[in-house]
């Protein structure tokens, strides 16, 4: 009984297809987004996240139709991120059927954008995505915010950035370790724990999941409120239900 920790499959979308890059290269086609989202819904996913990684502007338009189609078939919360720069982008995604919109690079360029978006649409629908990379391995540990899909350093401390984003109205933080993303070595638990202890809003841990016990670690050791993973679910290694059973055995509250 009580609030369940959430398991969130993440679908990277390129021009309307689900893809998964391993260390940002070798993009493998993982299927039709509507079919994949429905499958995860049936397996008991608590939410679904789409990250639009389409580079071309004409390709970007496909995301709206896709969100609308998923929203007419899948009745669990849907977060959409990638290339969200203006209030109008937020409005269009919400109107298409997204429940939350994830903002990353645009927040770094203009933190007030987060404030405007959350004032206008409500804190519950604004997720700030933070891509963080370790810059100090010695105490005190430190992480830096990167933008543009992890390619561009900003010089901003990730933990301070998280706190500032919450002050601006972020309702949730999607925290990705750039050191772990694609490695399958597990979450950066110190990063997750430090952020979780530093902000009042829920944290979604992301980056590095290679097996189901990594999800357990993210919750118990990392203090995450939700865990996000892509490749372990996409290629049939594990179902969402298996993930939740492992979490349940570890004493974590889950929705089954």
């Amino acid at each position: 009984m009580g609030l369940a920790k959430r398991v969130i499959p993440c679908l990277d979308i390129d021009a309307g297809r689900v893809v998964k890059g391993v260390k940002f290269v070798d993009i493998r086609d993982a299927g039709d987004p509507v079919e994949v989202a429905s499958k995860y819904d049936q397996q008991g996913a608590d939410e679904i996240t789409f990250l639009d990684i389409t580079a071309s502007s004409e390709g970007r338009q496909t995301i709206y139709a896709l969100v609308e189609e998923v929203a007419s078939q899948v009745f669990i919360p849907m977060t959409v991120g990638g290339g969200v720069r203006e209030l109008d982008d937020v409005h269009r995604l919400l109107h298409a059927g997204a429940d939350k919109v994830a903002v990353n690079t645009a927040a770094v360029h203009n933190p007030e954008f987060v404030r405007e978006a959350s004032n206008h649409f409500g804190v519950q629908c604004i997720v700030v995505a933070i891509d963080a990379k370790r810059v100090s391995d010695k105490s005190p540990l430190a992480w830096e915010v990167f933008t543009h899909g992890g390619r561009q350093p900003t010089g901003i401390d990730a933990i301070e950035w998280g706190q500032r984003m919450v002050d601006c109205g972020a309702g949730e933080i999607l925290l990705t370790s750039m050191d772990r993303d694609g490695t399958r070595d597990g979450f950066d638990l110190e990063l997750t724990r430090t952020m979780s202890n530093s902000v009042p809003v829920p944290i979604i841990a992301s980056g590095g999941v290679g097996n189901l016990s990594h999800l357990v670690e993210g919750i118990i050791e990392g203090g995450a409120d939700a865990v996000l993973a892509a490749s372990i679910f996409h290629f049939g290694e594990h179902t969402i239900l298996e993930a939740k059973q492992v979490m349940l055995e570890a004493g974590i509250e889950v929705r089954l």
Binding site: L3, K5, R6, Q124, V201, P202, D225, A226
Partner: peptide, 10 residues
């Protein structure tokens, strides 16, 4: 406890 209360509850 985190606020917002976000997720699936009984």
């Amino acid at each position: 406890l985190k606020v917002p209360h976000m997720g699936w509850n009984n």
